[in-house]
Write a protein that binds this DNA or RNA. Structure first.
Lengths: 232, 232
DNA sequence: GAGTGGTCTAGACCACGTG
DNA sequence: ACGTGGTCTAGACCACTCC
């Protein structure tokens, strides 16, 4: 092991937490004590503690010390975009229509706008091996400079659609995942003959001032799409 | 603004990236240059750059410099446990049975074990306002000291079930989310009369050596449960 | 060899929490 | 008053990249 000192210190403390030698709520030795214990300087010890803080193992209270956190065992990361999925990637998209509409009451509430503002509605169908696997609708606040060029919209993900007007850095987003039985209209669009369940993914985008930019709903054939999440 | 210097530097660089004054792939000024620009020491500048690195705005290549990253606009955080959900929390759970079984071929493959190893199978039904809303199965590698006490299992989440034998810190987990039409057996268990879609959540747990500990599947009534993710 | 980031030291002053 | 963590300085040596 010729890893840096701060890695060794972090590993040492981490394994004490994992083996429950240190329990949640326990007070860690102070920075000064750790400096003595490991025979190193304060900045090095602080680097180690910073790592464990980022990894959610510990937290600090100024004036009091460092404490062991309870593990966060419910947290998952999920990488989602409309086209990329676990079982079958979408390999083609067809634009049904692009409309400029007046929002319904429900939509104007969701987007926190007046009902006389204009909304761009984009409807698409996604295909895998020429089989229609998803029906997709986006409602985006109309802004000048919006790309309403078909070619640009057809194959774009939701964040990409708004990237002309909003930076994608630090953009706030929400996902809602549910399951539904398709309505007749959706059944026809997706050529569904038998009974089928839909995986429904709703997306909501906000700009850096927390103002809603748009909402989208994608209805996936349940037998074609899985979403995947993982820890870390 | 009396925030620390390193916060000011981080904000300065961050907003240059957000306004596209600095574009993905661009080289940032060197640490030494930033020290001069902000009239501060190297450790302070490095603290700022460390923050932006953690926030995924930039990355560094030793010997070359810091560079602006492309934004990660597909990443979401989802907090999931079987009982806590967006629309209706599960307020009760009923244990159907706890079995010690021999795994099927498929299950032994998933858990990477011999078929003669023993598996604990736990079947539960979850309720909201006394309505059955989910059917839940867990398959856990049998280990000595496993809690097979009903009271302990009935209301526990999956990670909690295995916490006797494995630390919850840094435990690796996977989620798979899909939608299915219920089989007759599930329909009966959940008292489903009409056509209904199920939201299916599969969980897989690994110990700190990446060895599978167990798998679980939860079948939720689609009209009762939504999962929520956010960009954090 | 000059410039870059990565690691590390030995100090300093401050705000905060506990006696 | 003392111990705690939070911020900051002015150096140092190293490994790496590029010329």
């Amino acid at each position: 092991m010729n890893s840096p000192v701060y890695i060794k210190i972090a590993n040492g403390i981490r394994s004490k937490i994992e083996t429950e030698e240190l329990m949640p709520g326990d007070n860690l030795p102070s920075e000064a004590a750790l400096c003595k214990e490991y025979g190193t300087s304060r900045m090095t010890v602080r680097k180690s503690l910073g790592i464990l803080t980022n990894e959610n193992y510990i937290y600090s209270i100024p004036g009091k010390g460092y404490f062991v956190k309870k593990p966060e065992y419910n947290k998952y990361i999920i990488y989602y975009d409309e086209m990329t999925n676990l079982i079958n990637n979408v390999d083609n998209a067809k634009l049904l229509e692009v409309d400029i509409i007046n929002p319904s009451k429900r939509l104007s509430d969701t987007l926190q706008i007046n009902m006389n503002k204009k909304i761009v509605a984009i409807r698409r169908v996604f295909y895998t091996d020429e089989i229609p696997v998803a029906y997709d609708i986006k409602y985006i606040l109309y802004q000048k400079g919006m790309p309403i060029v078909e070619k640009e919209i057809e194959q774009a993900t939701f964040p990409e659609m708004v990237s002309r007007n909003t930076t994608l850095y630090g953009m706030k987003k929400e996902l809602m995942i549910s399951a539904k039985v398709p309505k007749e209209r959706t059944k026809k669009l997706l050529n569904l003959l038998e009974e089928q369940a839909l995986l429904v993914v709703e997306q909501k985008l906000y700009d850096n001032n927390d103002k809603p930019i748009g909402v989208g709903i994608t209805y996936y054939r349940g037998d074609y799409i899985k979403l995947q999440g993982m820890s870390q």
